[in-house]
């Protein structure tokens, strides 16, 4: 197990270096001039030159990369050109928001997707199955922004139950925090639940036809126990993979959903930063997200090994 872990950890280093180079290189390909977009309407050549100098925009790309990497290795992710605040503080400000939203969305997805998948597999070709499939189709084909706006009109404008947008920190007022995040979490969770339902359904169907399920039934076990204890447990491996990947995706920010509900998370930060060519912020956020994503994959790998000892090899 230890050797496995060490091997996986070693693989992370070159991956991260490659990711950092990719982010840096790719965003240099973006058309537009960061100094020009920063200046906006106040375009004076002398001031533009000062900005380019201050942020080393005139230096060759490898030199810029070197300075950035040097900073990153010493724990300094750089400074936002637009806001003058440090990228690390921006990340620290947004990470809890995104984590909360991702966790809530995942809980909603699990809460809906897995039971629906199980029911659909167990009650194959019945009204339950068709209903669940219809739900999945709806979840997959409803665009987030549309569902989001509809929910705002229903729950905020018409019924007045929930604030239309904005965000309150959990520590500040947990009720208000849940009230501001429940709609975006549902919008995100809804789409995920659909995918989760389809995966759970197919994995469960496979498991239900396996020999050990027949054996379990032959032993006279209660059907509920057969489904939940024997079939579900075995069907969970692909679902865990999916969950880990989805959680990673959620952490990189739900761009449209955050924009509609004005949730100040990673997605909104990264979009604003790309449009403003605030390179340091884009680089910092992508690097942090990549690290989290890779770590989650590692955790998923560990989870497999724990679930299935044969993989320990």
């Amino acid at each position: 197990m230890l050797a496995f872990l060490a091997q996986r950890l070693l693989q992370i280093i070159p991956t991260l270096i490659l990711v950092s180079m990719l982010i840096f290189g790719l965003q240099q390909l973006l058309p537009g001039d960061p100094a020009l977009i920063m200046a906006g309407e106040e375009r004076d050549p002398k001031v533009l030159e000062e900005i380019r100098e201050q942020y080393r925009l005139n230096e060759p790309i490898p030199v810029q990369y070197f300075y950035w990497m040097k900073g990153v290795l010493s724990g300094n992710l750089g400074e936002s050109m637009r806001l003058k605040s440090s990228v690390a503080s921006l990340v620290a400000e947004k990470l809890p928001v995104t984590l909360q939203l991702a966790a809530m969305a995942l809980l909603i997805a699990i809460g809906i997707g897995i039971p629906a998948g199980i029911v659909s597999a167990v009650k194959k070709d019945t009204a339950w199955d068709y209903g669940a499939n219809l739900f999945a189709l709806w979840g997959l084909s409803t665009p987030n922004f549309w569902l989001g706006i509809l929910m705002i009109f229903l729950f905020s404008v018409t019924l007045g139950w929930l604030p239309a947008s904005g965000y309150v920190r959990l520590g500040e007022n947990w009720q208000a925090s849940l009230a501001t995040t429940i709609m975006p979490a549902f919008v995100l969770g809804n789409a995920l639940a659909a995918v989760l339902m389809r995966h759970t359904r197919s994995a469960m169907m496979q498991a239900m036809g396996a020999d050990y399920v027949r054996t379990a039934r032959a032993k006279g076990l209660h059907e509920g126990r057969v489904v939940l204890k024997h079939a579900l447990r075995n069907a969970m491996t692909p679902v865990i993979t999916l969950l880990a990947l989805d959680f990673g995706t959620l952490l990189s920010g739900a761009v449209l959903t955050e924009q509609i509900f004005t949730i100040p998370g990673f997605g909104k930060l990264i979009v604003d930063s790309v449009f403003n060519r605030d390179y340091a912020v884009v680089q910092g956020v992508v690097l942090v997200t990549a690290t989290v994503y890779i770590s989650l994959n590692l955790l998923a790998d560990i989870a497999y090994v724990l679930v299935n000892p044969r993989l320990r090899g």
Binding site: M104, L107, I108, I110, G111, I112, I114, P115, F155, G160, W161, L162, P163, Q175, A176, L178, A179, T181, I182, F186, G189, L228, L232
Partner: peptide
């Protein structure tokens, strides 16, 4: 276990909706 998580998610939705309903006027 999975059932519990599902239930938790559901109760979260419910409580947040109720909390939100009660909470909304406090914004003004």
């Amino acid at each position: 276990m999975k059932k519990t998580i599902g239930l938790m998610a559901f109760s979260l939705v419910l409580s947040a909706t109720v909390a939100g309903g009660a909470f909304a006027p406090a914004f003004a």
